[in-house]
């Protein structure tokens, strides 16, 4: 969950990411590294729709271009200086991030979805094992729709984080009740108990 005008750090495989949202509500995903001295941009400060690096105040616009270097207030930074920007779309109550050179289309998810639970697993998790006995339709390589017999439709997405394990993100269709959310959340926690403690 990223509030407007704030940042957070995330990881996909070995890619360190700075996720941030401007006052405009648009979510961005950048390489978590200021091009100047390598500082994690997730420690930066968002003012309106620009992100400022904590280390030297280099400031980047929403498209990743550096437009201010405070040590040289009269310098117009060269247009070549910028953060590395990833593709980032927000659908199904989740952010979806890909390398710019990744040609696959962002997922198309109909309707409105509400985030239910994001849970960290210390191991690498194969989605196919997790949903082996469930009624599921694949959305893409990293997400499945699940149709539990006794509740609202769920969307389960996997975020592989290399040696840091896996994040699983669960969202429910907007029609879901409070009970659906509690049941779905308990289901995910039970899975973590099974995979991390009992196994």
């Amino acid at each position: 969950m990223i509030q407007n005008e704030s940042t957070m750090r995330s990881v996909i495989e070995n890619n360190d990411l700075a996720l941030w949202r401007g006052a405009d509500g648009v979510a961005r995903a950048w390489e978590n590294r200021c091009p100047h001295r390598g500082m994690r941009l997730s420690y930066g400060i968002v003012r309106k729709n620009r992100l400022t690096c904590l280390y030297h105040g280099w400031t980047f616009n929403g498209e990743g271009r550096c437009d201010k270097i405070p040590a040289h207030p009269n310098l117009d930074p060269p247009t070549t200086i910028g953060a590395k920007v990833y593709k980032c779309v927000e659908v199904g109550g989740l952010l979806w991030v890909a390398h710019t050179e990744n040609s696959s289309e962002p997922p198309v998810i109909n309707g409105s979805w509400i985030p239910c639970r994001s849970l960290h697993f210390t191991k690498k998790i194969a989605l196919s094992n997790l949903i082996a006995r469930m009624d599921a339709d694949p959305l893409n390589a990293h997400a499945q729709y699940l149709n539990p017999p006794d509740g609202a439709k769920m969307l389960l997405a996997v975020q592989p984080m290399g040696k840091r394990g896996t994040m699983l993100h669960l969202t429910l269709h907007a029609e879901a009740t409070r009970e659906d959310h509690l049941r779905a959340s308990r289901w995910l926690i039970a899975h973590r108990l099974t995979t991390e403690i009992i196994a």
């Binding site: 360190d16 978590n32 590294r33 091009p35 100047h36 001295r37 390598g38 500082m39 994690r40 420690y43 904590l54 280390y55 270097i69 040590a71 040289h72 310098l75 200086i81």
Partner: peptide
Amino acid sequence: IILENQIPRRLPLDMRLEIPTRA
């Protein structure tokens, strides 16, 4: 706080990896 959050942890000597200014 800065030093433990610079990537990579080792120092790049190749100027192309981290853009310097006059400062």
